[in-house]
Write a protein that binds this DNA or RNA. Structure first.
Lengths: 259, 259
DNA sequence: GCTTGCTAAAATGTCAGACATTTAATAGGC
DNA sequence: GCCTATTAAATGTCTGACATTTTAGCAAGC
Protein backbone atom coordinates (compact mmCIF):
# COMPACT_ATOMS: atom_id res chain seq x y z
CA UNK A 1 0.00 0.00 0.00
CA UNK A 2 1.39 3.34 -1.00
CA UNK A 3 0.69 6.89 0.00
CA UNK A 4 -1.65 7.64 -2.89
CA UNK A 5 -4.59 9.75 -1.90
CA UNK A 6 -3.22 11.10 1.34
CA UNK A 7 -3.81 14.84 1.34
CA UNK A 8 -0.99 17.35 1.58
CA UNK A 9 -0.41 19.06 4.86
CA UNK A 10 0.49 22.52 6.03
CA UNK A 11 2.28 23.03 9.28
CA UNK A 12 4.64 21.15 11.52
CA UNK A 13 5.40 17.56 12.34
CA UNK A 14 2.33 17.34 14.57
CA UNK A 15 0.06 17.75 11.60
CA UNK A 16 1.97 15.10 9.70
CA UNK A 17 1.78 12.71 12.63
CA UNK A 18 -1.95 13.29 12.89
CA UNK A 19 -2.37 12.60 9.21
CA UNK A 20 -0.45 9.35 9.29
CA UNK A 21 -2.00 8.25 12.56
CA UNK A 22 -5.51 8.67 11.23
CA UNK A 23 -4.59 6.71 8.13
CA UNK A 24 -3.32 3.94 10.37
CA UNK A 25 -6.37 4.07 12.63
CA UNK A 26 -8.60 3.83 9.60
CA UNK A 27 -6.88 0.60 8.68
CA UNK A 28 -5.09 1.84 5.56
CA UNK A 29 -2.28 -0.65 6.18
CA UNK A 30 -2.59 -4.23 7.30
CA UNK A 31 -0.91 -5.16 10.59
CA UNK A 32 2.56 -6.45 9.89
CA UNK A 33 2.75 -4.67 6.55
CA UNK A 34 5.67 -2.42 5.67
CA UNK A 35 5.22 1.29 6.30
CA UNK A 36 6.65 3.79 3.78
CA UNK A 37 10.31 4.67 4.21
CA UNK A 38 11.46 7.98 5.57
CA UNK A 39 12.72 9.29 2.25
CA UNK A 40 9.50 8.35 0.48
CA UNK A 41 7.54 10.29 3.08
CA UNK A 42 9.90 13.23 2.66
CA UNK A 43 9.31 13.19 -1.07
CA UNK A 44 5.56 12.70 -0.93
CA UNK A 45 4.83 15.41 1.61
CA UNK A 46 7.74 17.63 0.63
CA UNK A 47 9.07 18.03 4.16
CA UNK A 48 12.45 17.58 5.77
CA UNK A 49 13.59 14.27 7.11
CA UNK A 50 13.57 15.83 10.54
CA UNK A 51 9.84 16.36 10.51
CA UNK A 52 9.22 12.88 9.21
CA UNK A 53 11.35 11.38 11.96
CA UNK A 54 9.58 13.43 14.63
CA UNK A 55 6.21 12.34 13.34
CA UNK A 56 7.27 8.70 13.20
CA UNK A 57 8.60 9.00 16.74
CA UNK A 58 5.09 9.90 17.91
CA UNK A 59 3.61 6.95 16.07
CA UNK A 60 6.21 4.71 17.68
CA UNK A 61 5.46 6.05 21.14
CA UNK A 62 1.77 5.21 20.75
CA UNK A 63 2.50 1.70 19.57
CA UNK A 64 1.10 2.21 16.09
CA UNK A 65 4.33 1.27 14.32
CA UNK A 66 7.58 -0.43 15.14
CA UNK A 67 10.91 0.69 13.72
CA UNK A 68 14.15 -1.25 13.46
CA UNK A 69 17.43 0.00 12.10
CA UNK A 70 18.21 -1.68 8.83
CA UNK A 71 14.89 -3.43 8.49
CA UNK A 72 12.46 -0.58 8.24
CA UNK A 73 9.08 0.33 9.68
CA UNK A 74 6.22 -2.11 10.13
CA UNK A 75 2.64 -1.55 11.23
CA UNK A 76 1.69 -3.08 14.57
CA UNK A 77 -1.53 -4.90 15.27
CA UNK A 78 -4.44 -3.36 17.10
CA UNK A 79 -3.65 -5.24 20.32
CA UNK A 80 -0.44 -3.29 20.67
CA UNK A 81 -1.95 0.15 20.25
CA UNK A 82 -1.71 2.33 23.32
CA UNK A 83 -5.38 3.22 23.43
CA UNK A 84 -4.95 4.97 26.75
CA UNK A 85 -2.46 7.48 25.43
CA UNK A 86 -4.09 10.93 25.37
CA UNK A 87 -2.40 11.56 22.06
CA UNK A 88 -4.26 8.61 20.59
CA UNK A 89 -7.59 9.98 21.74
CA UNK A 90 -6.87 13.27 20.05
CA UNK A 91 -6.11 11.51 16.83
CA UNK A 92 -9.33 9.53 17.02
CA UNK A 93 -11.59 12.53 17.39
CA UNK A 94 -13.54 13.20 14.26
CA UNK A 95 -12.42 10.07 12.51
CA UNK A 96 -14.93 9.75 9.71
CA UNK A 97 -14.97 5.98 9.65
CA UNK A 98 -13.80 4.66 13.01
CA UNK A 99 -13.17 0.97 13.21
CA UNK A 100 -16.42 -0.53 14.54
CA UNK A 101 -14.46 -3.02 16.61
CA UNK A 102 -12.63 -0.15 18.27
CA UNK A 103 -15.86 1.63 19.14
CA UNK A 104 -17.30 -1.54 20.60
CA UNK A 105 -14.20 -2.31 22.65
CA UNK A 106 -13.97 1.18 24.09
CA UNK A 107 -17.64 1.16 24.94
CA UNK A 108 -17.37 -2.26 26.56
CA UNK A 109 -14.63 -0.85 28.71
CA UNK A 110 -16.69 2.15 29.71
CA UNK A 111 -19.64 -0.08 30.46
CA UNK A 112 -17.64 -2.07 32.95
CA UNK A 113 -15.54 0.76 34.37
CA UNK A 114 -17.72 3.83 34.56
CA UNK A 115 -20.16 2.52 37.18
CA UNK A 116 -17.22 1.81 39.45
CA UNK A 117 -15.84 5.26 38.83
CA UNK A 118 -19.21 6.81 39.62
CA UNK A 119 -19.21 4.89 42.88
CA UNK A 120 -15.79 6.24 43.77
CA UNK A 121 -16.88 9.72 42.78
CA UNK A 122 -19.80 9.54 45.16
CA UNK A 123 -17.38 8.71 47.93
CA UNK A 124 -14.70 11.27 47.18
CA UNK A 125 -16.64 14.15 45.64
CA UNK A 126 -15.91 17.71 46.77
CA UNK A 127 -17.45 21.08 46.10
CA UNK A 128 -15.35 21.83 43.09
CA UNK A 129 -16.31 18.52 41.48
CA UNK A 130 -19.99 19.16 42.00
CA UNK A 131 -19.65 22.55 40.36
CA UNK A 132 -18.06 20.94 37.33
CA UNK A 133 -20.77 18.30 37.14
CA UNK A 134 -23.59 20.80 37.52
CA UNK A 135 -22.13 23.17 35.00
CA UNK A 136 -21.80 20.40 32.45
CA UNK A 137 -25.29 19.10 33.13
CA UNK A 138 -26.82 22.54 32.78
CA UNK A 139 -24.99 22.92 29.49
CA UNK A 140 -26.42 19.63 28.28
CA UNK A 141 -29.90 20.68 29.28
CA UNK A 142 -29.59 24.06 27.62
CA UNK A 143 -28.41 22.62 24.30
CA UNK A 144 -30.69 19.61 24.23
CA UNK A 145 -33.66 21.12 22.44
CA UNK A 146 -31.72 22.97 19.77
CA UNK A 147 -30.65 20.70 16.89
CA UNK A 148 -28.21 23.37 15.76
CA UNK A 149 -26.20 23.15 18.96
CA UNK A 150 -25.56 19.47 18.71
CA UNK A 151 -21.79 19.71 18.61
CA UNK A 152 -21.90 21.96 21.65
CA UNK A 153 -24.11 19.43 23.37
CA UNK A 154 -21.49 16.78 22.74
CA UNK A 155 -18.87 18.94 24.40
CA UNK A 156 -20.99 19.22 27.53
CA UNK A 157 -21.61 15.51 27.40
CA UNK A 158 -17.89 14.82 27.34
CA UNK A 159 -17.34 17.34 30.11
CA UNK A 160 -19.95 15.63 32.28
CA UNK A 161 -18.38 12.22 32.04
CA UNK A 162 -14.92 13.61 32.41
CA UNK A 163 -16.08 15.34 35.59
CA UNK A 164 -17.11 11.96 36.98
CA UNK A 165 -13.62 10.60 36.40
CA UNK A 166 -12.08 13.70 37.95
CA UNK A 167 -14.33 13.41 40.98
CA UNK A 168 -12.94 9.95 41.71
CA UNK A 169 -9.85 11.79 42.91
CA UNK A 170 -7.64 8.97 41.76
CA UNK A 171 -4.57 9.69 39.68
CA UNK A 172 -5.11 6.71 37.42
CA UNK A 173 -8.84 6.89 36.84
CA UNK A 174 -8.84 10.59 36.10
CA UNK A 175 -6.51 10.02 33.18
CA UNK A 176 -9.10 7.94 31.39
CA UNK A 177 -11.38 10.84 30.71
CA UNK A 178 -9.62 11.05 27.37
CA UNK A 179 -11.26 7.86 26.23
CA UNK A 180 -14.65 9.51 26.42
CA UNK A 181 -14.09 11.91 23.63
CA UNK A 182 -13.71 9.53 20.69
CA UNK A 183 -16.37 7.28 22.11
CA UNK A 184 -18.98 9.99 22.47
CA UNK A 185 -18.06 11.58 19.18
CA UNK A 186 -18.58 8.27 17.45
CA UNK A 187 -21.98 8.16 19.06
CA UNK A 188 -23.03 11.45 17.59
CA UNK A 189 -21.77 10.58 14.14
CA UNK A 190 -23.42 7.19 14.14
CA UNK A 191 -26.82 8.62 14.92
CA UNK A 192 -26.71 11.38 12.36
CA UNK A 193 -29.17 9.51 10.19
CA UNK A 194 -32.07 9.15 12.60
CA UNK A 195 -32.42 12.65 13.95
CA UNK A 196 -36.00 12.34 15.12
CA UNK A 197 -35.28 9.23 17.08
CA UNK A 198 -32.27 11.06 18.41
CA UNK A 199 -34.28 13.94 19.76
CA UNK A 200 -36.63 11.55 21.45
CA UNK A 201 -33.79 9.67 23.08
CA UNK A 202 -32.19 12.84 24.31
CA UNK A 203 -34.79 13.42 26.96
CA UNK A 204 -34.29 9.95 28.29
CA UNK A 205 -30.54 10.31 28.21
CA UNK A 206 -30.68 13.66 29.93
CA UNK A 207 -32.86 12.27 32.67
CA UNK A 208 -30.44 9.43 33.36
CA UNK A 209 -27.50 11.81 33.49
CA UNK A 210 -29.40 13.87 36.02
CA UNK A 211 -29.84 10.84 38.24
CA UNK A 212 -26.11 10.24 38.27
CA UNK A 213 -25.57 13.82 39.29
CA UNK A 214 -28.09 13.56 42.11
CA UNK A 215 -26.62 10.32 43.40
CA UNK A 216 -23.14 11.80 43.50
CA UNK A 217 -24.43 14.96 45.11
CA UNK A 218 -26.00 12.94 47.89
CA UNK A 219 -22.85 10.86 48.18
CA UNK A 220 -24.73 7.66 47.51
CA UNK A 221 -22.25 5.16 46.01
CA UNK A 222 -24.73 2.41 45.24
CA UNK A 223 -27.15 4.76 43.55
CA UNK A 224 -24.39 6.41 41.57
CA UNK A 225 -23.13 3.07 40.34
CA UNK A 226 -26.48 1.88 39.05
CA UNK A 227 -27.40 5.29 37.66
CA UNK A 228 -24.17 5.35 35.66
CA UNK A 229 -24.98 1.92 34.35
CA UNK A 230 -28.35 3.19 33.20
CA UNK A 231 -26.72 6.03 31.33
CA UNK A 232 -24.52 3.60 29.50
CA UNK A 233 -27.42 1.34 28.61
CA UNK A 234 -28.97 4.34 26.94
CA UNK A 235 -25.68 5.10 25.21
CA UNK A 236 -25.47 1.54 23.96
CA UNK A 237 -28.79 1.96 22.21
CA UNK A 238 -27.66 5.19 20.61
CA UNK A 239 -24.43 3.59 19.49
CA UNK A 240 -26.34 0.79 17.83
CA UNK A 241 -24.70 -1.81 20.03
CA UNK A 242 -26.91 -4.75 20.91
CA UNK A 243 -29.22 -3.56 23.64
CA UNK A 244 -29.08 -6.45 26.11
CA UNK A 245 -25.77 -6.95 27.89
CA UNK A 246 -23.56 -5.23 25.32
CA UNK A 247 -20.68 -6.25 27.49
CA UNK A 248 -21.09 -9.88 26.63
CA UNK A 249 -21.44 -9.42 22.93
CA UNK A 250 -18.43 -7.17 22.72
CA UNK A 251 -16.02 -9.32 24.65
CA UNK A 252 -17.16 -12.90 24.36
CA UNK A 253 -16.42 -13.47 20.69
CA UNK A 254 -12.88 -12.29 20.02
CA UNK A 255 -11.83 -15.70 18.77
CA UNK A 256 -10.92 -14.28 15.39
CA UNK A 257 -8.74 -11.63 16.97
CA UNK A 258 -6.28 -14.15 18.30
CA UNK A 259 -4.30 -14.18 15.07
CA UNK B 1 18.09 22.17 41.44
CA UNK B 2 21.04 21.12 39.37
CA UNK B 3 22.25 17.87 37.95
CA UNK B 4 24.75 17.16 40.69
CA UNK B 5 24.87 13.56 41.70
CA UNK B 6 23.21 12.08 38.66
CA UNK B 7 25.36 9.20 37.51
CA UNK B 8 26.92 9.07 34.07
CA UNK B 9 25.39 6.83 31.49
CA UNK B 10 26.59 4.57 28.75
CA UNK B 11 24.46 3.90 25.75
CA UNK B 12 21.80 5.64 23.73
CA UNK B 13 19.11 8.18 24.35
CA UNK B 14 16.88 5.55 25.95
CA UNK B 15 19.26 5.19 28.84
CA UNK B 16 19.40 8.93 29.26
CA UNK B 17 15.63 9.20 29.21
CA UNK B 18 15.38 6.47 31.82
CA UNK B 19 17.86 8.25 34.02
CA UNK B 20 16.10 11.58 33.87
CA UNK B 21 12.65 10.02 34.19
CA UNK B 22 13.59 8.21 37.36
CA UNK B 23 15.03 11.40 38.81
CA UNK B 24 11.74 13.10 38.03
CA UNK B 25 9.67 10.25 39.46
CA UNK B 26 11.73 10.37 42.63
CA UNK B 27 10.74 14.00 43.03
CA UNK B 28 14.17 15.51 42.39
CA UNK B 29 12.50 18.62 40.95
CA UNK B 30 9.44 20.39 42.27
CA UNK B 31 6.45 20.65 39.95
CA UNK B 32 6.61 23.89 38.04
CA UNK B 33 10.35 24.20 38.53
CA UNK B 34 12.70 24.78 35.63
CA UNK B 35 14.33 21.73 34.11
CA UNK B 36 17.98 21.96 32.96
CA UNK B 37 18.54 23.36 29.50
CA UNK B 38 19.52 21.21 26.56
CA UNK B 39 23.08 22.47 26.40
CA UNK B 40 23.62 21.91 30.11
CA UNK B 41 22.47 18.34 29.72
CA UNK B 42 24.78 17.92 26.74
CA UNK B 43 27.70 19.16 28.80
CA UNK B 44 26.90 17.19 31.94
CA UNK B 45 26.37 13.84 30.25
CA UNK B 46 28.74 14.48 27.39
CA UNK B 47 26.31 13.52 24.67
CA UNK B 48 25.11 15.16 21.51
CA UNK B 49 22.20 17.55 21.50
CA UNK B 50 20.36 15.04 19.37
CA UNK B 51 20.34 12.44 22.11
CA UNK B 52 19.25 14.99 24.66
CA UNK B 53 16.39 16.10 22.46
CA UNK B 54 15.28 12.53 21.85
CA UNK B 55 15.33 11.80 25.55
CA UNK B 56 13.39 14.97 26.34
CA UNK B 57 10.88 14.05 23.66
CA UNK B 58 10.12 10.85 25.55
CA UNK B 59 9.68 12.76 28.78
CA UNK B 60 7.34 15.15 27.01
CA UNK B 61 5.28 12.31 25.55
CA UNK B 62 4.71 10.87 29.02
CA UNK B 63 3.66 14.20 30.45
CA UNK B 64 6.59 14.50 32.83
CA UNK B 65 7.80 17.80 31.42
CA UNK B 66 6.49 20.57 29.21
CA UNK B 67 8.64 22.39 26.69
CA UNK B 68 8.06 25.77 25.07
CA UNK B 69 10.23 27.48 22.51
CA UNK B 70 11.97 30.45 24.02
CA UNK B 71 10.84 29.82 27.57
CA UNK B 72 12.47 26.52 28.36
CA UNK B 73 11.47 23.27 30.01
CA UNK B 74 9.37 23.03 33.15
CA UNK B 75 8.45 20.04 35.29
CA UNK B 76 4.78 19.11 35.27
CA UNK B 77 2.80 18.13 38.34
CA UNK B 78 1.92 14.58 39.20
CA UNK B 79 -1.67 14.97 38.03
CA UNK B 80 -0.47 15.40 34.47
CA UNK B 81 1.73 12.33 34.37
CA UNK B 82 0.57 9.67 31.92
CA UNK B 83 0.62 6.85 34.43
CA UNK B 84 -0.96 4.50 31.93
CA UNK B 85 1.84 4.82 29.42
CA UNK B 86 3.74 1.52 29.29
CA UNK B 87 6.94 3.49 29.06
CA UNK B 88 6.18 5.02 32.42
CA UNK B 89 5.70 1.62 34.01
CA UNK B 90 9.08 0.51 32.73
CA UNK B 91 10.69 3.52 34.27
CA UNK B 92 9.05 2.89 37.61
CA UNK B 93 10.26 -0.67 37.95
CA UNK B 94 12.96 -0.96 40.55
CA UNK B 95 12.63 2.59 41.74
CA UNK B 96 14.40 2.48 45.08
CA UNK B 97 12.25 5.09 46.75
CA UNK B 98 8.91 5.29 44.94
CA UNK B 99 6.67 8.12 45.92
CA UNK B 100 4.34 6.70 48.62
CA UNK B 101 1.44 8.68 47.25
CA UNK B 102 1.99 7.09 43.86
CA UNK B 103 2.00 3.59 45.31
CA UNK B 104 -1.20 4.30 47.21
CA UNK B 105 -2.94 5.79 44.18
CA UNK B 106 -2.03 2.93 41.90
CA UNK B 107 -3.13 0.42 44.48
CA UNK B 108 -6.41 2.25 45.04
CA UNK B 109 -7.00 1.98 41.33
CA UNK B 110 -6.27 -1.72 41.29
CA UNK B 111 -8.51 -2.24 44.29
CA UNK B 112 -11.45 -0.75 42.47
CA UNK B 113 -10.69 -2.07 39.01
CA UNK B 114 -9.30 -5.55 39.34
CA UNK B 115 -12.43 -7.17 40.79
CA UNK B 116 -14.35 -5.93 37.77
CA UNK B 117 -11.67 -7.24 35.45
CA UNK B 118 -11.77 -10.63 37.17
CA UNK B 119 -15.51 -10.69 36.62
CA UNK B 120 -15.04 -9.98 32.92
CA UNK B 121 -12.33 -12.60 32.74
CA UNK B 122 -14.68 -15.21 34.16
CA UNK B 123 -17.12 -14.37 31.40
CA UNK B 124 -14.71 -14.25 28.50
CA UNK B 125 -12.00 -16.74 29.48
CA UNK B 126 -10.74 -19.23 26.90
CA UNK B 127 -8.43 -22.19 27.01
CA UNK B 128 -5.32 -20.20 26.26
CA UNK B 129 -6.07 -17.79 29.10
CA UNK B 130 -6.52 -20.61 31.57
CA UNK B 131 -3.19 -22.05 30.56
CA UNK B 132 -1.52 -18.73 31.24
CA UNK B 133 -3.21 -18.42 34.60
CA UNK B 134 -2.37 -21.95 35.65
CA UNK B 135 1.21 -21.68 34.54
CA UNK B 136 1.67 -18.49 36.51
CA UNK B 137 -0.02 -19.92 39.57
CA UNK B 138 2.12 -23.04 39.50
CA UNK B 139 5.17 -20.84 39.25
CA UNK B 140 4.05 -18.89 42.28
CA UNK B 141 3.49 -22.07 44.23
CA UNK B 142 6.84 -23.53 43.24
CA UNK B 143 8.79 -20.43 44.30
CA UNK B 144 6.81 -19.65 47.44
CA UNK B 145 8.83 -21.69 49.92
CA UNK B 146 12.26 -20.68 48.68
CA UNK B 147 13.35 -17.27 49.99
CA UNK B 148 16.09 -17.21 47.38
CA UNK B 149 13.63 -17.24 44.52
CA UNK B 150 11.72 -14.23 45.67
CA UNK B 151 12.36 -12.13 42.60
CA UNK B 152 11.24 -15.03 40.44
CA UNK B 153 8.14 -15.31 42.57
CA UNK B 154 7.36 -11.68 41.86
CA UNK B 155 7.59 -12.33 38.15
CA UNK B 156 5.01 -15.10 38.41
CA UNK B 157 2.86 -12.85 40.54
CA UNK B 158 2.92 -10.16 37.87
CA UNK B 159 2.25 -12.77 35.20
CA UNK B 160 -0.78 -14.04 37.11
CA UNK B 161 -2.43 -10.67 37.41
CA UNK B 162 -1.54 -9.75 33.87
CA UNK B 163 -3.18 -12.97 32.74
CA UNK B 164 -6.40 -11.82 34.40
CA UNK B 165 -6.35 -8.59 32.44
CA UNK B 166 -5.59 -10.49 29.23
CA UNK B 167 -8.44 -12.89 29.89
CA UNK B 168 -10.90 -10.00 29.93
CA UNK B 169 -10.44 -9.95 26.17
CA UNK B 170 -10.92 -6.23 26.07
CA UNK B 171 -8.49 -4.04 24.17
CA UNK B 172 -8.49 -1.34 26.82
CA UNK B 173 -8.34 -3.41 29.98
CA UNK B 174 -5.56 -5.63 28.71
CA UNK B 175 -3.31 -2.64 28.31
CA UNK B 176 -3.38 -1.96 32.02
CA UNK B 177 -1.39 -5.02 32.90
CA UNK B 178 1.61 -2.71 32.80
CA UNK B 179 0.45 -1.00 35.96
CA UNK B 180 0.90 -4.21 37.89
CA UNK B 181 4.62 -4.35 37.60
CA UNK B 182 5.62 -1.25 39.54
CA UNK B 183 2.86 -1.87 42.03
CA UNK B 184 3.88 -5.41 42.83
CA UNK B 185 7.56 -4.57 42.80
CA UNK B 186 6.95 -1.87 45.37
CA UNK B 187 5.19 -4.47 47.45
CA UNK B 188 8.20 -6.75 47.51
CA UNK B 189 10.57 -3.95 48.32
CA UNK B 190 8.42 -2.57 51.10
CA UNK B 191 8.26 -5.89 52.90
CA UNK B 192 11.94 -6.63 52.73
CA UNK B 193 12.31 -5.84 56.41
CA UNK B 194 9.88 -8.32 57.89
CA UNK B 195 10.81 -11.50 56.10
CA UNK B 196 9.27 -13.89 58.60
CA UNK B 197 5.97 -12.15 58.49
CA UNK B 198 6.33 -12.22 54.73
CA UNK B 199 6.71 -15.97 54.59
CA UNK B 200 3.69 -16.40 56.80
CA UNK B 201 1.59 -14.13 54.64
CA UNK B 202 2.63 -15.87 51.48
CA UNK B 203 0.56 -18.95 52.17
CA UNK B 204 -2.49 -16.83 52.72
CA UNK B 205 -1.80 -14.83 49.57
CA UNK B 206 -1.24 -17.97 47.55
CA UNK B 207 -4.49 -19.45 48.73
CA UNK B 208 -6.44 -16.38 47.72
CA UNK B 209 -4.83 -16.34 44.29
CA UNK B 210 -5.86 -19.94 43.87
CA UNK B 211 -9.47 -19.07 44.57
CA UNK B 212 -9.44 -16.48 41.82
CA UNK B 213 -8.09 -19.07 39.43
CA UNK B 214 -10.79 -21.55 40.39
CA UNK B 215 -13.56 -19.00 40.05
CA UNK B 216 -12.38 -18.02 36.59
CA UNK B 217 -11.95 -21.65 35.59
CA UNK B 218 -15.55 -22.34 36.54
CA UNK B 219 -16.66 -19.20 34.78
CA UNK B 220 -18.22 -17.81 37.94
CA UNK B 221 -18.20 -14.00 37.63
CA UNK B 222 -19.46 -13.23 41.11
CA UNK B 223 -16.99 -15.55 42.77
CA UNK B 224 -14.13 -14.23 40.68
CA UNK B 225 -14.96 -10.66 41.60
CA UNK B 226 -15.00 -11.25 45.33
CA UNK B 227 -11.98 -13.55 45.22
CA UNK B 228 -9.99 -10.87 43.44
CA UNK B 229 -11.05 -8.41 46.10
CA UNK B 230 -9.76 -10.77 48.75
CA UNK B 231 -6.40 -10.99 47.01
CA UNK B 232 -6.12 -7.22 47.03
CA UNK B 233 -7.04 -7.01 50.69
CA UNK B 234 -4.11 -9.28 51.38
CA UNK B 235 -1.91 -7.13 49.16
CA UNK B 236 -2.98 -4.03 51.02
CA UNK B 237 -1.69 -5.53 54.24
CA UNK B 238 1.62 -6.41 52.63
CA UNK B 239 1.92 -2.93 51.19
CA UNK B 240 1.42 -1.42 54.60
CA UNK B 241 -1.68 0.40 53.45
CA UNK B 242 -4.36 0.77 56.08
CA UNK B 243 -6.12 -2.58 56.32
CA UNK B 244 -9.78 -1.56 56.40
CA UNK B 245 -11.19 -0.08 53.21
CA UNK B 246 -7.88 1.12 51.77
CA UNK B 247 -9.90 2.63 48.99
CA UNK B 248 -11.35 5.26 51.23
CA UNK B 249 -8.14 6.27 52.85
CA UNK B 250 -6.32 6.54 49.60
CA UNK B 251 -8.84 8.65 47.75
CA UNK B 252 -10.80 10.62 50.31
CA UNK B 253 -8.07 12.93 51.50
CA UNK B 254 -6.45 14.52 48.47
CA UNK B 255 -7.32 18.00 49.61
CA UNK B 256 -3.66 18.95 49.78
CA UNK B 257 -3.11 17.83 46.21
CA UNK B 258 -5.38 20.45 44.81
CA UNK B 259 -2.67 23.08 44.79
C1' DG C 1 24.75 -29.57 -2.67
C1' DC C 2 25.46 -27.26 1.47
C1' DT C 3 27.57 -24.24 4.33
C1' DT C 4 30.41 -20.35 5.23
C1' DG C 5 31.91 -15.84 4.67
C1' DC C 6 32.48 -11.62 2.20
C1' DT C 7 30.37 -7.79 -0.01
C1' DA C 8 27.06 -4.44 -1.24
C1' DA C 9 22.71 -2.29 -0.74
C1' DA C 10 19.08 -0.28 1.89
C1' DA C 11 17.06 1.19 5.71
C1' DT C 12 17.10 3.61 10.24
C1' DG C 13 20.16 6.01 13.73
C1' DT C 14 23.50 9.70 14.93
C1' DC C 15 26.28 13.71 14.67
C1' DA C 16 27.63 18.64 14.01
C1' DG C 17 26.82 23.23 12.79
C1' DA C 18 24.21 26.83 11.21
C1' DC C 19 20.02 29.12 11.18
C1' DA C 20 14.91 30.21 12.51
C1' DT C 21 11.48 31.22 15.84
C1' DT C 22 9.57 32.23 20.14
C1' DT C 23 9.77 34.39 24.59
C1' DA C 24 11.22 37.53 28.09
C1' DA C 25 13.91 41.17 29.72
C1' DT C 26 15.91 45.62 28.93
C1' DA C 27 17.00 50.09 27.28
C1' DG C 28 15.48 54.17 24.97
C1' DG C 29 12.34 57.65 23.05
C1' DC C 30 8.25 60.24 23.46
C1' DG D 1 4.69 56.43 32.71
C1' DC D 2 3.91 53.96 28.56
C1' DC D 3 5.11 52.13 24.26
C1' DT D 4 8.52 50.31 21.14
C1' DA D 5 12.91 48.56 19.45
C1' DT D 6 16.75 45.84 20.67
C1' DT D 7 19.06 42.14 22.61
C1' DA D 8 19.70 37.70 24.80
C1' DA D 9 18.39 33.05 25.68
C1' DA D 10 16.01 29.19 25.02
C1' DT D 11 13.83 25.61 22.03
C1' DG D 12 12.73 24.32 17.09
C1' DT D 13 14.30 23.29 12.33
C1' DC D 14 17.09 22.36 8.33
C1' DT D 15 20.91 20.18 5.88
C1' DG D 16 24.42 17.06 4.66
C1' DA D 17 27.39 13.72 5.94
C1' DC D 18 28.42 9.63 8.31
C1' DA D 19 27.49 5.32 11.43
C1' DT D 20 25.13 1.15 12.34
C1' DT D 21 22.10 -2.62 11.57
C1' DT D 22 19.86 -5.85 8.74
C1' DT D 23 19.06 -8.36 4.62
C1' DA D 24 20.13 -10.38 0.34
C1' DG D 25 23.25 -12.09 -3.01
C1' DC D 26 27.11 -14.20 -4.59
C1' DA D 27 31.11 -16.79 -4.56
C1' DA D 28 34.61 -19.81 -2.62
C1' DG D 29 35.48 -24.05 -0.33
C1' DC D 30 34.43 -28.39 1.74
Amino acid sequence: MTLDGLPPHRGGAEELARLLARALLAGRWQPGAAFPRELDLCAHFDVSRNQVRNALASLTATGLIERTAGRGTVVREINDWHLLDPQMSEWMVGLTHPDPQLVREIFAFRYSAEPVVARLAAQAVETQDLERLESAFQGMTRTATDPEARSLHVEYDVAFHDAIYLASHNLVWRQMGHLLRPSIIALIQGSQAQVHQFQAGLEDSLDRHGQVLEAIRHRAPEAAESAAREVLRRTAIDLGIVTDSPLQSATASPADAEG
